[in-house]
């Protein structure tokens, strides 16, 4: 992603953490066997920036969580709410013995440090 930005002449590349751009980043159970993630932005600019950057995609999420893309059941960008949402299949149903997070509420941490390229005037 830095190579891509560096190709534009006269522009320097900086990155910002997703946590600094989004208002809400969360995860939550979606039914018995899924966890859904929401990344919600206060303003349209940051939403568009992240959406267009491509740092959040089926591929990047699969890579980040070390799962096969087939385990991502949904991935949507929802403009009216400035929100990006995706859902993954759980390792095991919520509350089964060995499940470490029965509400699925603490699975979003890896999203916080995603670096979003911000192209600034150089």
């Amino acid at each position: 992603m830095s190579a891509q930005a560096a190709a534009a002449p006269g522009q320097a590349t900086a990155t910002r953490r997703l946590a600094d751009l989004a208002k809400t980043i969360r995860s939550k159970n979606a039914g018995v066997d899924r966890i859904t993630f929401d990344v919600i932005f206060q303003d349209r600019d940051n939403y568009e920036l992240v959406k267009r950057s491509g740092v959040l995609s089926r591929e990047s999420v699969a890579r980040l969580y070390g799962i096969a893309e087939s385990r991502i059941t949904d991935f949507v960008t929802f403009d009216p709410a400035n929100a990006i949402k995706f859902t993954i299949l759980r390792e095991r149903p919520s509350g089964s013995p060995g499940d470490s997070d029965i509400f699925g509420a603490q699975q979003y941490a890896p999203l916080l440090d995603i670096e979003v390229p911000v192209v600034s005037e150089g």
Binding site: G66, I67, G98, S100, D101, Q106, Q107, A109, P110
Partner: peptide
């Protein structure tokens, strides 16, 4: 469950 390594996220822990 190994807390301090992947106790919360298990196999999903990067």
């Amino acid at each position: 469950q190994v807390y301090g390594r992947d106790g919360v996220m298990g196999a999903l822990e990067p």
